[in-house]
């Protein structure tokens, strides 16, 4: 009896100790991640903003492809329309930043909903084709529509005084990312998450359980577009100018691949992979020019294509060895950290 109580007590102590250890560890990791923001100056603040914006885009694609099982190869259209809408609201209408971001989100959502409505009548591979074609069409029509996008010079998106500092803006981006992460977490933990899992796996089964499959797919499109438009709005104010060339189709393909590399349905994996590919073009030139030996063919233009190159190599490795992406690799660690909690 006594030994039983002792064992019980020890288990309890261990459990409490384990929890404390895990909480400490998470806080420590977050603190390390916050270091560049505190000590890295404006350069790192800008990079962190970009990483957060990419992470929102990754989560947007994850909503569509990971949760609903639908593919979009035209995400640059949603992000781009969000960016131009935000810039238009800020510079032409002179509205506060919040309105611009809202306008971007609504524009992204509306576009995605329209594309979704049309696209839901086709399935699978055809959907990929339709979204690719839509992205390319948007690129050459909407983004070249002078009154809306300011033509070649681009549309300006000035920041308000309070956010003019790069660190303040980075905090805004991180705040929006936190909201998106929270929404994604609640989405998968409640009935919508289960319904989407059913829709993704077998629409007939989903429908016989009372789930409006078309409605959910359309909602996933709209939600994905909303996050993409929001990210576009943030991008507009991050760069303070938006140009059509920021949203080439290669960019959209890189986004899809980076999300798959991160691991569909893995929040942590998607965020990490998105951040990596956001920072790659910014840090790679410095890194390469710091090398003792310079490969002969490197120059500015080459830096531009290295990220797609690297994302593809990573994609092929991931598909061959870890179909669950980065998230699958990290799963033992995340499972230990959240041990006891529900998924």
């Amino acid at each position: 009896m006594a030994t039983a109580t002792m064992t019980f007590a020890r288990v309890k102590v261990q459990r409490r100790f384990g929890l404390a250890l895990r909480v400490t560890l998470v806080i420590a990791l977050l603190a390390v991640a916050a270091l560049p923001l505190v000590y890295g100056g404006d350069v790192w603040a800008q990079r962190i903003s970009r990483a957060a914006i990419y992470a929102i885009i990754g989560l947007s694609i994850n909503t569509l492809t990971g949760h609903a099982g639908q593919i979009s190869l035209g995400h640059q259209a949603f992000v781009g329309i969000g960016a131009f809408a935000a810039a238009f609201t800020a510079s032409r209408l002179g509205a506060p930043l919040g309105f611009g971001l809202a306008a971007g989100a609504v524009a992204g959502m509306a576009t995605a909903a329209v594309v979704g409505m049309v696209a839901l009548r086709v399935t699978g591979l055809y959907l990929a084709l339709v979204t690719l074609a839509f992205g390319l069409t948007a690129e050459t029509t909407i983004f070249n529509w002078r009154e809306f996008t300011g033509g070649g010079a681009g549309a300006f998106a000035p920041r308000p005084d309070i956010l003019s500092g790069d660190r303040a803006f980075a905090l805004l981006c991180l705040g929006v990312l936190a909201l998106v992460l929270y929404a994604d977490w609640r989405l998968v933990s409640t009935k919508a998450g289960r319904a989407l899992a059913a829709v993704r796996n077998d629409e007939r089964i989903a429908a016989t359980l009372g789930i409006d499959t078309t409605g959910y797919k359309l909602a996933a499109f709209s939600l994905s577009g909303l996050a993409a438009g929001l990210a576009g709005g943030l991008f507009a104010h991050w760069n303070q100018v938006v140009q059509a060339m920021d949203f080439e189709f290669q960019v959209a393909l890189v986004w899809v691949l980076m999300t798959v590399v991160g691991g569909l349905r893995s929040r942590l994996g998607v965020v990490l992979a998105s951040a990596f590919f956001a920072l790659l073009p910014l840090t790679l030139p410095n890194f390469l020019s710091g090398l003792p030996w310079q490969p002969p063919f490197l120059n500015e233009a080459v830096y531009h294509v290295l990220p797609p190159f690297i994302v593809v190599v990573m994609l092929l490795l991931v598909l061959r060895f870890f179909p669950g992406g980065l998230g699958q690799l990290l799963r033992p660690a995340t499972r230990w950290l959240t041990k006891g909690g529900r998924r």
């Binding site: 409640t190 009935k191 919508a192 289960r194 319904a195 899992a197 059913a198 009372g210």
Partner: peptide, 25 residues
């Protein structure tokens, strides 16, 4: 999905809250 998740999936229509409310927590 797990068995529990499957059964909870089947409870979809009597969850008693909207998908949006769930997402907003």
């Amino acid at each position: 999905l797990t068995v529990t998740e499957n059964v909870m999936l089947a409870q979809h229509q009597r969850a008693g809250y909207s998908a949006l409310a769930g997402m907003l927590g």
